[in-house]
Structures are given as C-alpha cells and as structure tokens.
Write a protein that binds this DNA or RNA. Structure first.
Length: 263
DNA sequence: TGTGATGTTGAATG
DNA sequence: GCATTCAACATCAC
C-alpha cells in the first residue's frame, strides 16, 4: 500500500474522519508494531486526548495530539488505517484500535507487522535522528539535482533512499524511471542536467497525479507502466520487452532498450 | 511447497 | 564518518 501517494491519502482520510474527536478507548491486540511503548503506555498516551493536526513527510505520517505529542504511523509494507463502526467490520489483521467519541473506530490493520508505531515527544529531534530527507513533493529542483552529484549508486537506489528524498518506494521508482526512459540501474552520478530535469518534472507529475487520484490504482492513466509491466504482450511491445532484475534489493521492472542505461 | 511481497534498519564492507 | 549493500524482520497469498 504505502508510498507517498498512499500515505498522503491515509492522511487526508484521517482528517476527514477522526481529527478533533475525543479518544474514548484504545485496545492493543498485538504490540509488535509498537516500537517504543508498551500497550499500557500507548493507551495512556492516547486515552482522553484528541488528534488536532497531522504531519506527513515522505512515508512518515504523524498524528499530533492536543498535548503536542506526535504518534508516528509508519505503514511498513502492508499497514492501513480502516474506519468502521461495528465490530463486524473489524479488519482481519487489526493490531490495535482507537475508538472515538462519535462511535467511529480506527482499526490499524497490518498483516505483515512491518509497521512502526512510535510515540514521539519532539518531532524535529526525531526527524533529525532518522535523518529523513525532504519530501519528494516539496524538494526543490536545485536540491534534487544536487543529490546526484558524485553518487556511485544506481538511480533507483537513490530515488528510494529516504535519507536523501522521502516518499518514493519500489513501484513509483519504476514508474518514474520508465516515463523518463532511463534505466533504473543507471549510475546516479552519470546523469546529465537534462536527465535530472526530466526526472524531477516526472517525479512531481507522477506523485501529484497519484495523490489527486487518491492512490487508487484502477483510475491511474492508461499509459503508466505499472499496469502493463507484467504483461509485455500488450502496450509495451512496440517499445521493447519487459526486463526484470534486482536493483537496490528490490524486484525492478523496466523496458529493455526503451529505457537507456547511462553509466 | 516455495516464493515473493508498495519498507526500514543495523551490520558489514570499502 | 560517509557511501553502499544486504540479510533480517513476520506473515500472508498465489
């Protein structure tokens, strides 16, 4: 689920549903994803409070309580926030739930339990500790271009490095490389100003478009890569065959020939 | 039955 | 200290 557009959508929904509502009950079913608090501490932190605002940087989404404490909801690979009213609708892999004064329940669902739920006293210090880079929709073109200087790593690894630029994961990295017609294994430091210009523009376009469509894949534009990458008999045939390889430890799809390898 | 999965991290290496 | 790579994390679904 969760790269920048997905997390942004989670944030928007959070605003539309539970912001400013009083928290009346918190229940923890599986505490593995609570990385710096016990279930008891977690409950005490939330009980009787309200979320009054949120903050998102890359894939890091924070709910801000009325006493200034931040709760990080990092969704990992499979985390999601589900809203419901009756127990029948409780999601199958709910790890904890927060009930609000209007009866709405926020269920935190995460089959794979790679989520990180943290209680954070001081947001700036935390962000500094994890050295989180600027959000991909906020970073300036100058900052973006400067990241690439003298980098030995691959384009894809750079795009997915959250300490350099926050928000891009495996799927959107492939999409950006495809639309830019640049091979994801290209050497980051070897890209020209022109390449970087195209990459920056496309990165913003793709992420913004995905945010606008609320990360709802089915209504993404037809010419996007993700739709066809597993089916090279169709749209991509005229461009080349779809290649698959591991880059930066992740399965990577690209179109041979069409995406130029720059080294 | 194996394999891979939209992420991060800490250890290991250079 | 910095840059980079990669196994490990825990579990489900095809």
């Amino acid at each position: 689920m969760p790269e920048l557009p997905e997390v942004n959508t989670v944030r928007n929904n959070f605003h539309l549903t539970v912001l400013h509502l009083n928290i009346i009950e918190v229940a923890v079913h599986d505490d593995v994803i609570l990385r710096n608090s016990s279930p008891k501490q977690f409950k005490q932190t939330l009980d009787g409070r309200r979320f009054v605002d949120t903050y998102r940087q890359g894939k890091y989404f924070f709910g801000i309580l009325d006493n200034g404490i931040h709760i990080l909801f990092h969704l990992g690979m499979t985390g999601d926030l589900i809203y419901y009213f009756t127990r029948d609708d409780q999601p199958k892999y709910e790890r904890f739930r927060i009930q609000f004064s209007d009866g709405m329940i926020l269920g935190y669902n995460d089959p794979r339990k790679f989520s990180n739920i943290l209680v954070i006293q001081n947001l700036p210090i935390y962000l500094q500790e994890i050295k989180l880079g600027p959000d991909a929709l906020v970073i300036s073109q100058e900052e973006f271009e400067a990241m690439f200087a003298n980098r030995k790593t691959s384009l894809k690894a750079l795009l997915m490095n959250q300490q350099l630029i926050a928000g891009i994961g495996n799927l959107y990295a492939d999409e950006i490389c495809y639309q830019a017609k640049i091979h994801p294994a290209s050497s980051a430091g070897a890209l020209s100003r022109r390449h970087l210009n195209v990459l920056y523009k496309l990165m913003r376009e793709i992420l913004q478009e995905a945010c606008d469509r609320e990360a709802y894949y089915q209504i993404y534009p037809d010419n996007w890569f993700w739709k066809w990458r597993s089916d090279d008999t169709k749209v991509l045939k005229g461009k080349g065959s779809v290649g698959k390889m591991k880059i930066a430890g992740r399965t990577t799809y690209f179109v041979e020939g069409y995406q130029k390898l720059i080294v």
